[in-house]
Structure formats: structure tokens, C-alpha cells
Simulated assay, not measured.
Amino acid sequence: MKRIMPRRSGSAALIVLASVAGWILASETMAAPSEPSVASSAAPASATRKENRALRKRVYAAFAKDKSIDAGNIGVGVKDGAVTLTGTVADASQIERAVTLAKGVSGVVSVTNKLTVRRDFGQ
């Protein structure tokens, strides 16, 4: 069987490279001017993250003010005002108290409760 070796031509590679570069430049100039740029769409996302962090801190602050619950093992997730509580608490009454406190924070739209009662090993 005869092996066919490709011809090594520098000019052929340059022609292909030049045509690809030309195609890329042409497609960029034909883009619609109404398309949002990456920089403009990043600003609202950054503001939303900042608002979510601020709301999360306010929920944690509400837990810290109330001495009847142990919030050390409670996680707070926030997305667009929707709060999700995760983790464990010492007893069932603390679950309801945590949900009530979270709902009382301004800016909270809804609360999803995923808290469970902590069980000691061997019980």
C-alpha cells in the first residue's frame, strides 16, 4: 500500500488562515447594534448579587437578635428575595421560629424551609 503524504505548503496555510480571519471580522461587523454587550449585562447581575448578600446578612442578623434559637448550624441562601433555610436545629420549635424570623425581614419574598432537627449519635 502506498502512503500519500500531504504537501507542505506555507502559502496554502496562509490562505486558509486569511479566509478564516476575514470571515470572523465580517461576522463581527455585521452584528446587530442592539445586542447587549457583556459589560452592560454584568452590571445588573453584580447589583443582584450585592442585594442578595445584603438580604442574607439581614436574615442572619435577625437570627442573632433572637436568643431562643441556635442559628449556628443554619444556612441561609437568597435568590431574588427568595430565602432558603438549610441545616439543623436543636428542636422542632426552632424550625418554626427561624422561618418566622426570616419572613419578618424586609425584602424577603418567600421562605423555603429545609431545616431538620439535629439528632445525636446513638439515638
Rank of each mutant, 00 (worst) to 15 (best):
S110F: 00
A54M: 09
A62V: 03
G75F: 06
V99N: 04
S27H: 03
R53F: 07
T112A: 13
I69K: 03
A18W: 09
K50H: 12
A47Q: 15
Q94F: 01
A90S: 13
N113G: 03
A82Q: 12
S27G: 04
Q123A: 14
A54S: 12
N73H: 13
V108M: 06
G87W: 00
I74W: 03
I24F: 13
E35P: 00
L55N: 02
A62F: 06
V83L: 07
E35N: 07
K65C: 05
N52R: 00
V108I: 04
T86A: 03
S106M: 02
M5E: 10
D70M: 03
A45S: 13
E28Y: 10
L25S: 08
S40V: 10
A12W: 12
G77Q: 01
A64K: 09
A47M: 13
I4D: 08
E35G: 04
P33T: 08
L14H: 06
A39M: 08
P6H: 13
R3D: 11
G122Y: 08
A31N: 01
R119D: 05
A61E: 14
S34I: 06
A18H: 07
D70C: 03
S40T: 12
P6L: 14
P6F: 10
W23T: 15
G104I: 02
V89T: 05
A47H: 06
Q94N: 04
T88G: 05
R119I: 10
I24H: 09
G75A: 09
V111I: 05
K103G: 01
T112S: 14
G122H: 01
V89D: 05
G75P: 04
S46A: 15
A13Y: 14
K57W: 06
A13L: 15
T112E: 12
T29K: 11
Q94S: 04
T88M: 07
D70Y: 01
I69T: 01
A47L: 14
S34M: 07
L14R: 11
M1V: 15
F63P: 04
T88P: 00
S68E: 15
K79C: 06
M5Q: 11
P36N: 07
E51T: 10
S37A: 11
R118D: 11
